[in-house]
Design a protein around this nucleic acid. Sequence first.
DNA 1: GAGATGACGGGCT
DNA 2: AAGCCCGCCATCT
Length: 110
Amino acid sequence: MNKLKATFYEQVYAFVRAVPRGAVVTYGQVALELGAPAAARAVGYALHFLPGDNDVPWWRVINVRGEVSFKNRGEAADLQRKLLESEGVVFDASGKTDLQQYRWWPDSQA
DNA sequence: GAGATGACGGGCT
DNA sequence: AAGCCCGCCATCT
């Protein structure tokens, strides 16, 4: 797993790195932008391998539901929510965000 | 080369 | 409405 050469992963990191503060993108969306509309799993996998000392705002990547996927699986979920809230993203009582409001698209930005 | 894994997505029950 | 199942892709062992 530590090969980390020019692979799909780096593409994911690059894309996430381009996500502006206060905006979020879904796994499926990232996969789509990378040319693999159905590789949402691979995207999540890529972020899973993401070390803690990188410059990739992985917390801005959420599932299509607008919520943290690993909400109760890892402590990182709490961190993610905290980070997003500090960026202006608001979570509702269900721990979900207004995806249609925060979702960011590279085309509409560039 | 084959099988198993995974921060997902969409569809069906 | 919530939960379960299947399928997708890329990587790893």
